[in-house]
Amino acid sequence: MAQHEVEITISKTGEVKVHIKGVKGRACLEYAEWLSNIVGKVKDQKLTSEYYEPEVKSRINLHQQLNDGQ
């Protein structure tokens, strides 16, 4: 089991800053894509050191849940 944390800051203008923590490799991009689909357009994106660490094979499965929920 891996813990994924997301810190979301919604500014008073509605702009959203998302900090995805504990997600290694390309899996974090799935979170980024999911959240950008919810909120709007990506204005800026920075990959941090953890992105380049070996990916733990975890099942994020956001899209599956998204489809199941519709």
Binding site: M1, A2, Q3, H4, E5, V6, E7, I8, T9, I10, S11, K12, I38, S58, R59, I60, L62, Q65, L66, G69
Partner: peptide, 29 residues
């Protein structure tokens, strides 16, 4: 959306600059 995807709310607060900060977590296999 966070609730529907099984995220648990860890913390939520309104900051001095009127922004809203939400911390959530989720366990995955």
């Amino acid at each position: 959306e966070l609730k529907s995807k099984g995220f648990q709310m860890v913390n939520e607060e309104v900051m001095d600059d009127q922004s809203i900060r939400i911390n959530v977590r989720r366990w995955v296999d």
